[in-house]
Design a protein around this nucleic acid. Structure first.
Lengths: 224, 224
DNA sequence: GATACAATCATTGTATACAAAATACAGAGG
DNA sequence: CCTCTGTATTTTGTATACAATGATTGTATC
């Protein structure tokens, strides 16, 4: 744990939630590395709280798949093997397709406008080269589709799945040679949704996620 | 909470896990009813433990969607509206189809044999009329397919989704007029899997889940 | 020098204590 | 009779204390 890990206390939330969000962020950003132990006393000291909220936050991380605990040995950040990632991506493919199919039926005019706007924003951002903005607009693009399903449970699950790929996906976005493909894929998805053509949209989404999946797998293999 | 809620202490597990499983069972069986408050002191007294493991178990239930907590107000058993159930079933449909598609590719000879055996066991059980056995063999039937995917994350998710429908599904199984349909659907699924025909298998699974979905929805509407 | 064993230390598991917020209720005032 | 308000009680949130387990280190013996 090389990081400072300071709490963000602005809102009035139970400490367990603040700790939970802090630790989750740290894990997703890579500040807490896979396999790193999550020691209660240490985290409590670092975050300036007692062990109780730390423990509860760990229980929550555990259920989200971001931490693993061995009884009497404590918790550690979940390791992601290539196989784990493939498993996640397999599910994500199916659910992202489902989401876009539903979105084709249910999307409102307003959401559609927003989707098109964000698609263009994404394209602009790839030109500026600001990685953070690129990632943000990509996330937003998919969020709009998720929201358009009107299925909050699906949204939660997809967010959770996306989270798990997060660390590696950044690498994918770093490489500018992927931009044209990404843009074309987004374009195809929008085209499908706009025409309420579930077949086209889900096909495009399938390709989009599958390409990302392939790239992420390559990145992981490169790291091993 | 009309129930006794005694702990099952046979295995050596942390109390939080024992409490978690106990509460989960109670919720799924309907002993703890939707909307019922989960008061820490009360549960702690009833289960003979302190508040700490109770709290941690509640955090876990929360992440599984079985409990909802309002800060400073406490937790209660999650209510399932018709909409919630539709949302869950929508996801389940997609993932069950995914599972059976993968199973078509990956299932081993041994698993296939087992699947056929359990299918027949299910048929036999419908004839005997033992509800518990019917439900068990139905669960097992689907479990074999889940396991055949070789994707533990998918298995976990599907189990979780299934859990959420559990309370209502029992009603579905109670009605003997559904048995011929269920048997035919299982037959079609097995047929598809056996021939590694993903299209047929996923079509059959789609119908299977969709039928159940329709029935569950009817039951809920009847209750409201 | 290697191995077995004991003592010590670090860390988790559980219980309890204390603080703060929310709720329930009773009494005063209109 | 209703409403408002202040107080008592309940309940959650957080911290701390104690117990038990597991890891580590050091020492004695072969």
């Amino acid at each position: 744990m090389t990081d400072d890990l300071t709490l963000n206390m602005n809102a009035y939330l139970p400490l367990r939630d603040v700790v939970f969000h802090t630790l989750r962020e740290a894990i997703l950003k890579g500040d807490l590395k896979p396999g790193e132990r999550l020691m209660e006393l240490q985290l409590a000291a670092k975050l300036g709280v007692s062990r109780t909220p730390i423990r509860e936050a760990i229980r929550m991380l555990e259920q989200e798949g971001l931490a693993v605990t061995m009884p009497r040995k404590g918790a550690e950040v979940a390791k992601m093997t290539l196989k784990d990632m493939e498993d996640v991506l397999e599910i994500r493919e199916a659910l992202d397709e489902l989401a876009v199919r539903i979105a084709c039926e249910k999307i409102t005019e307003e959401q559609l406008k927003k989707l098109i706007a964000v698609k263009e924003e994404f394209e602009a951002n790839t030109k500026s080269g600001d990685l953070k903005k690129i990632a943000e607009s990509d996330v937003l693009f998919h969020d709009i589709i998720y929201m358009a399903t009107g299925n909050p449970k699906l949204v939660t699950m997809l967010n959770n799945l996306r989270e798990q790929v997060y660390r590696y996906r950044v690498e994918y976005i770093k490489n500018p040679k992927n931009y044209p493909v990404l843009i074309a894929e987004h374009e195809a998805i929008v085209e499908g949704v706009k025409n309420h053509d579930a077949k086209k949209a889900s096909g495009a989404m399938h390709e989009h996620v599958a390409n990302q999946a392939a790239a992420v797998k390559e990145i992981i293999q490169g790291q091993e």
